[in-house]
């Protein structure tokens, strides 16, 4: 959900909207915002599942330290989505697995 109106900051200035693909689904995102922000705006909270037990993980620290929000972006694995800006046409996948080894 987007914060459209704000008592201190005023109306949200909408940047350039672009499309990105997240696990095969096309979503609208603001160019330059962190990938994680674009996903949270769509209510998408699970960025990955842990390799061994398949537990879901999402954004925790938001500053690129905890690596809970890593996803595969344009074929590059383990990208920290909270500090990686959106570019139009990005393909993002969450490496979701049901647990256990591949």
């Amino acid at each position: 959900m987007r914060v459209e109106k704000h008592p201190v900051l005023g109306d949200r200035e909408v940047g350039r909207l672009v499309s990105i693909t997240v696990d095969g689904k096309e979503i609208q995102a603001v160019e330059g915002e962190p990938i994680a922000a674009a996903l949270l705006a769509q209510g998408m909270r699970v960025m990955r599942k842990t390799p061994r037990y398949g537990e879901p993980r999402g954004v925790f620290c938001g500053i690129g330290r905890c690596t809970d929000c890593i996803m595969t972006v344009d074929g590059v694995p383990n990208v920290r989505t909270c500090v990686t800006p959106v570019k139009g046409g990005m393909v993002v996948t969450s490496n979701l697995r049901d647990g256990g080894k591949e």
Binding site: V3, L40, V59, G62, I63, D68
Partner: peptide, 30 residues
């Protein structure tokens, strides 16, 4: 800092500062 309790790794448990960045800078409510 994080703090551990059952379920503390679930998506939706976030640092308060991370929440603040999302709402005030990126204008996204987590």
């Amino acid at each position: 800092n994080a703090v551990a309790f059952p379920g503390s790794t679930l998506p939706g448990v976030m640092g308060a500062g991370a929440i603040q960045t999302m709402i005030n800078v990126h204008r996204v409510l987590p």
